[in-house]
């Protein structure tokens, strides 16, 4: 099944004062999916997102939104996007409603009924006529989502949407993002430096470090690629030598040997070990966490 591409990024680069910050990244977003943008702080996630919404001009490369080129057809392209870049800053001296009204005036065909609709959607209808200065961070975050949804976008871009929320708020936000993708058919791009978050709500994930995309794939497949088998066998030395002849031994210590996970060949390896008189006590396939994956891909760079 091929889903429609809503956002296509090709060879995007940005050089600031002679230093290349973004080193040629390409990816696509499909209709109805939640796409995770994962990387440590300083990897270039926010810079990339700013280029996607036209706040920063790329040095080279293109961004197309629903077929419109972001730079040549700015207004047509940007109309398809709703976004929160960093914190959802609003005018604190206006009410939530006035803030939404203010942004609605900048978009054609958005009236009071749509404002009420999004206010209800994010659950703010009770406090919508209060001044934003009196809102809690969670409420501001919701108002941020409300302004992003105001123009009925096809693509929603959220930069660190759970930043500063409490655990209940985070869970709620996650459910809401899934709802928008599944029920409303939006493409949602979510950036985060938190692995657990991406793992829990994204269909596909792009891993970014030092201005490059290291991998783009479904969460499942990325994890499977890196799946391991942990062997417990005695004597360990013999087992290790035998396994090394068949596959790559990634790690070994006194008790355990780690090899790549290849389900089709696992039984044969085991038979060889048994024939050679090695007693195999445990064969455990293990999926890495995204964290392991990340360390593997970046060559040891950690994320907090």
């Amino acid at each position: 099944m091929t889903k429609q591409v809503t956002l296509a990024v090709k060879e995007l680069r940005k050089t600031i004062r002679g230093k290349e910050i973004i080193k040629g990244i390409s990816f696509e977003l499909h209709e109805g999916e939640v796409f995770g943008f994962l990387g440590p702080n300083g990897a270039g996630k926010t810079t990339t997102i700013r280029m996607l919404v036209g706040l920063i001009r790329p040095t080279s490369g293109t961004v197309a939104i629903c077929g419109y080129d972001l730079h040549r057809q700015f207004t047509d392209a940007i109309r398809q996007i709703g976004c929160i870049v960093e914190n959802p800053e609003m005018y604190p001296y206006l009410t939530g409603w006035e803030n939404l009204e203010h942004f609605a005036r900048m978009m054609p065909g958005i009236g009071a009924d749509r404002i009420m609709e999004v206010a209800k959607l994010v659950g703010l209808e009770q406090r919508i006529h209060d001044r934003v200065g009196t809102y809690s961070l969670g409420m501001r975050q919701r108002l941020g989502i409300a302004q992003a949804l105001l123009g009925k976008p096809k693509v929603l871009i959220l930069d660190e949407p759970t930043n500063g929320l409490d655990p209940a708020g985070i869970r709620e936000m996650r459910a809401f993002i899934r709802f928008l993708a599944e029920t409303e058919g939006l493409s949602v791009l979510v950036s985060s430096h938190l692995l657990s978050e991406i793992q829990l709500m994204c269909d596909r994930v792009a891993i970014m470090a030092k201005g490059r995309l290291l991998a783009v794939d479904t969460v499942e497949r990325l994890l499977n690629q890196q799946a391991r088998v942990v062997w417990k066998a005695a004597p360990t030395d013999r087992a290790r030598a035998l396994l090394a002849a068949e596959t790559e031994v990634l790690r070994a210590d006194e008790e355990t040997i780690v090899t790549p996970y290849e389900p089709s060949r696992l039984a044969a390896w085991n038979a060889k070990l048994v024939q050679a008189g090695v007693s195999v006590s445990e064969i455990e396939p293990r999926l890495p966490t995204l964290e392991d994956l990340f360390i593997e891909l970046t060559g040891g760079e950690t994320i907090e």
Binding site: G54, F74, D76, R79, I81, E86, P88, E89, Y91, G151
Partner: peptide, 14 residues
């Protein structure tokens, strides 16, 4: 300085 400029510039207005 308040960051609201970002919300202004991502609208379909030049």
């Amino acid at each position: 300085s308040a960051g609201t400029i970002k919300l202004l510039l991502v609208r379909p207005v030049k």
